[in-house]
C-alpha cells in the first residue's frame, strides 16, 4: 500500500445554473479502504462521484485520482478505475456472459471463457449467466453492473448507491460482495443514503449535506464525536420520569414516544449513573442500554432524520 492517497480533492465545486451542487469540498482518501459518502437526495453525491470519474467537469477546485487531474485527461487511469453508475441498467437483450465479453472488448481486453465464468462467480451470478439481462431481478442487475465494473480488476471502484431500491436480502448480498472486493486490495468509494449500510461497510464516512461535507471519520469516531456513545433507555418513563431524573442532577432527554434517554459519555460514569437511578422511584416498562449509531450522528449534525434518502423531521 503506497502512502499516496488514491483520491485527492481540494476545494472542489460544481455550479449548475442556479444550484451549487458541490460546494468546496476537500477530501483525501487512502488506499484499500471503503469510503462512504452519506447524504440525502440532492446532497451532491453523484455530482462529486462523476467528477471523480471524469464524466463531469468541475467548476472550480481540483480533483486527482492516482495523481492524475481528472478534469484534464482520464485515459491514463481509465482501466485502473471501475464504475457502477447510479441506477445502472444493463443492456436488456444481452446475457450476462455476453455483456462481460462485450465490456472486455471495449477495454481492448482479451478474456477467456474461464475469466468470464470466474467473474460471474465473484458476483454470485453464475446460475443466471444465460438469461437475457432484462429478465434479471433488480439485485442481479446491480451484480452484473458490478461484474462489468470489475472487468479490469480495478484498484479503485466507484459504487453510486449500489443498493438503493433493493430488498434487504439483496442488499446484504451486495454488502458481502463489496467487503470481498476490499479484501482483494481495492479501494471502494461508495455513496449511499442508508445509514446502516455506511456503518456496516465503511472504514471512513463523510456526511454530505447541501454540497458540503459536514463531518467525516470512521463510524466509531463519528459516534464518539457527535453522539453520546451509549445511552441508558428508561422505556416509558415519560414527563414524570424526566422531572424526577433531572431533579437529581442527571442529564436526560425525552423522546416523543415517552422513552427517557440518559446519555453516558464516559464508560466510567456508567456505575455512578446506575446507582443514582436506582435510588429513584420510577415507573418504567423496561430499562436497557443502547449504543448510539450513525443515525443519531446524522440527526445531530444535519438536524433531520433521513429515510430512503428523504430528509424528515
Amino acid at each position: 500500500m503506497s502512502a499516496e492517497p488514491v483520491i485527492e480533492v481540494v476545494e472542489l465545486s460544481k455550479q449548475y445554473k442556479d444550484i451549487r451542487a458541490v460546494d468546496g469540498i476537500s477530501l483525501s482518501i487512502p488506499s484499500n479502504q471503503i469510503f462512504s459518502m452519506l447524504g440525502a437526495n440532492g446532497a451532491g453525491k453523484t455530482t462529486t462521484v462523476e467528477i471523480l470519474e471524469g464524466l463531469r467537469s468541475p467548476t472550480s477546485g481540483s480533483a486527482r485520482v492516482f495523481g492524475v487531474d481528472v478534469a484534464k485527461d482520464y485515459r491514463p487511469i481509465r482501466s485502473r478505475v471501475g464504475i457502477l453508475p447510479q441506477n445502472f441498467e444493463p443492456f436488456d437483450m444481452l446475457k450476462p456472459t455476453e455483456a462481460i465479453e462485450y465490456w472486455a472488448g471495449l477495454f481492448d481486453k482479451k478474456v477467456t471463457r474461464k475469466d468470464v465464468s470466474d467473474l460471474l462467480e465473484t458476483v454470485n451470478l453464475s446460475h443466471r449467466k444465460d438469461v437475457v439481462s432484462k429478465k434479471l431481478s433488480g439485485g442481479e442487475k446491480r451484480k452484473l453492473g458490478i461484474a462489468l465494473s470489475l472487468i479490469n480488476e480495478p484498484e479503485l471502484l466507484f459504487l453510486d448507491e449500489p443498493t438503493t431500491g433493493l430488498d434487504p436480502r439483496a442488499r446484504r448480498d451486495l454488502w458481502a460482495l463489496i467487503e470481498g472486493i476490499k479484501k482483494k486490495g481495492s479501494t471502494v468509494f461508495l455513496t449511499t443514503h442508508y445509514l446502516d449500510e455506511a456503518e456496516k461497510l465503511s472504514d471512513d464516512v463523510a456526511i454530505m449535506h447541501k454540497g458540503r461535507i459536514i463531518t467525516r471519520g470512521s463510524p466509531e469516531d463519528l459516534v464518539r464525536k457527535h453522539g453520546k456513545l451509549t445511552v441508558i433507555v428508561l422505556a416509558g418513563a415519560g414527563e414524570v420520569g424526566l422531572k424526577e431524573v433531572t431533579r437529581r442532577g442527571i442529564d436526560a432527554t425525552l423522546e416523543s414516544d415517552g422513552d427517557l434517554l440518559v446519555p453516558v459519555r464516559d464508560p466510567t460514569e456508567m456505575r455512578q449513573i446506575f446507582q443514582k437511578l436506582s435510588g429513584i422511584e420510577l415507573k418504567v416498562k423496561d430499562m436497557y442500554t443502547r449504543k448510539q449509531t450513525l443515525e443519531d450522528v446524522f440527526l445531530s449534525v444535519v438536524g433531520q432524520k433521513m429515510d430512503e434518502g428523504v430528509l424528515g423531521k
Binding site: G54, N87, E89, D108
Partner: peptide, 12 residues
Amino acid sequence: RGYFKLLATTNI
C-alpha cells in the same frame, strides 16, 4: 438509460 455515460467510461 445512461448507456452513453457507461460507454464513456470505456475505451471506445
